[in-house]
């Protein structure tokens, strides 16, 4: 053991802290590009998974290129021409914080606990033989510990869920973290977002959702994940409500294919 004196101890500790922090900071900075590229790839993959286009082992970027990326104005649901905002450069989360591109949500509107919401959102259109087959919408909202990010894919009728994923969150693994479990997410399929009055009605319940018509607005619960799932229900209420995608979905319920085709200028 080294001879002990307070200055020497302090010096050793400081030196070690310096070396260690340099190492950690160096690695974090050095690997950041790769990590961010991975994250973008993961987002693409999840969009494909939600739209049921993903094949394991396939080239994600090539597959993703078949999906049409558009930007919509959430206020009225109209498409924003790419000259005004280019989808490839649009960062939705940064937009929410931007004073021009986002706005603060008053507490009574802020069901998903977002604080601020962007005025524009990316949407992903999946076409089959030139006709719109699915629309993938980004969703997010607060769970117990973290912001949960995911995608919901809707069928051509813009009401039936075709698929869903959660790809980033900090919920407890094994409990709330089960929201990313594909088996649970498979249960979202064929559920209906809106009820007869056109209000968003889809939510997660405790226990098992009833089969058939009765359970069309209900998603199975996960035991020990109730509060996370309340967050999921809330974010569905928000993103399919008046301040989310409802204006967009209503505007295009009958004619998305035409408009999508006409100002298609990408």
């Amino acid at each position: 053991m080294a001879k002990e004196s307070t200055p020497k101890t302090v010096l050793t500790v400081l030196l070690l802290a310096l070396v260690c922090s340099t190492l950690v900071a160096g690695t974090a900075v050095g690997l950041r590009d790769r990590q961010e590229a991975n994250q973008r790839l993961d987002e693409m993959k999840n969009i494909l998974v939600a739209a049921d286009l993903y094949q394991s082992g396939a080239d994600i970027e090539a597959l993703f290129a078949t999906v049409e990326t558009r930007i919509v104005r959430l206020e009225d649901g109209s498409f924003v021409p790419p000259e005004e905002l280019a989808p490839a450069e649009f960062n939705q989360l940064k937009a929410a914080l931007d004073p021009e591109l986002g706005r603060k949500l008053p507490a009574d509107q802020d069901l998903a606990g977002l604080g601020r919401r962007e005025n524009y959102s990316l949407v992903y259109l999946v076409r089959e033989n030139g006709e719109l087959a699915k629309v993938v919408l980004p969703i997010r909202g607060r769970g117990v510990w973290s912001m949960m990010f995911g995608y919901v894919a809707l069928d051509r009728d813009l009401n039936t869920v075709a698929g869903a994923t959660f790809y980033r969150h900090g919920e407890t693994p094994g409990l709330g973290g089960e929201i990313e479990n594909p088996r649970w997410l498979a249960g979202w399929q064929d559920k209906k977002i809106y009820d007869e009055e056109g209000q968003p009605a889809l939510r997660v319940i405790k226990g098992e959702a009833p089969a058939g018509e009765e359970g069309r607005h209900r998603i199975d619960g996960i035991s020990a994940a109730t509060r996370t799932l309340d967050g999921v229900s809330d974010l569905l209420q928000f993103w399919f409500g008046d301040h989310g995608f409802k204006p967009f979905l209503e505007r295009h319920r009958d004619g998305i294919m035409e408009e999508g085709g006409s100002d298609h200028g990408r």
Partner: peptide
Amino acid sequence: RIPNTVRIGIQITIIATLVILVDQ
């Protein structure tokens, strides 16, 4: 060279650094 009085802290710092590197 590790002073006996702070050895646990130093061990933890070294281990934590390695783990963060692996994680990154």
